[in-house]
């Protein structure tokens, strides 16, 4: 297949058509920050962290959902993008309560890592302190809405990989919440297979197994992609 020539941060690259900007950047070790992206499931472009500037486009586009085109000139590290990444990170922290000190994922959390990467030392916006539920009704797992950043990775994994569609989203605006079945306790779910893939997909400490304590959570979100790749081999 004919490769396309594209330019990322003033360097020239050859890439196959049909690939997203994010895929090409990852192949060439060009760092793009992401939260809602998870290899193995469809991209939704919701976290807006992977926005890039493309010459000739007035709008910033999300690298995960935008396919490359010939001679595309992409900038991933402009001052504007860095500034917006910092604001996005702060808003993630301010939206719910991410008290790292008492979180199971402390030290292995993608959101925490993101904070370090953008150099966020404090949050300039007031915390919203929404009333969030902690669902402990499942025999093995816990869903803590306080840690949720609404990346919907669990929703997509459950739907696209496991095919159970236990998770979905309710409400709108800043009142959106992840729900199990029809907003019933997780433990009573008739669709959940307790496969635990959502726990691996979750970037923060919103989904975790009861068997661990603070700071012990180890997540392996890459198993989702591995699973999907192996399925392809079988099929």
């Amino acid at each position: 297949m004919n490769k396309l020539t594209i330019y990322i941060d003033d360097k020239q690259f050859q890439a196959e058509p049909g690939k997203s900007i994010l895929e090409v950047c990852r192949e060439h070790d060009i760092e793009i920050l992401t939260m809602c992206h998870l290899k193995g499931v469809n991209d939704v472009g919701a976290c807006r962290l992977c926005l890039v500037e493309i010459e000739g486009m007035s709008k910033l586009l999300s690298a995960c959902t935008t396919k490359i085109t010939a001679n595309m000139v992409i900038h991933t590290k402009t001052e504007r993008i860095k500034k917006y990444q910092r604001i996005t990170t702060e808003l993630f922290f301010a939206e719910r309560n991410h008290v790292c000190a008492v979180c199971v994922a402390n030290g292995t959390c993608e959101l925490q890592d993101l904070g370090y990467k953008v150099g966020m030392d404090h949050i300039r916006y007031p915390f919203l302190f929404p009333k969030c539920e902690v669902d402990t009704s499942h025999p093995w797992y816990v869903m803590d809405q306080n840690r949720c950043i609404m990346c919907t990775r669990c929703v997509r994994v459950c739907n696209e990989v496991e095919g159970a569609h236990n998770w979905d989203v309710k409400n709108r605006g800043y009142q959106v919440r992840i729900i199990s079945d029809f907003d019933t306790p997780w433990g009573e779910s008739i669709t959940c297979t307790s496969c635990g893939k959502c726990l691996q997909a979750c970037p923060t400490g919103a989904l975790w197994p009861k068997a661990i304590v603070q700071g012990q959570m180890k997540k392996n979100p890459e198993i989702i992609d591995e699973l999907m790749e192996r399925r392809k081999m079988i099929l």
Partner: peptide, 18 residues
């Protein structure tokens, strides 16, 4: 200088805000 998470972003002390 704000020293520590509580001074910077309320942290555990802020959990009573709910």
């Amino acid at each position: 200088v704000a020293l520590g998470d509580c001074a910077v972003m309320t942290n555990v002390t802020g959990m009573r805000n709910y």
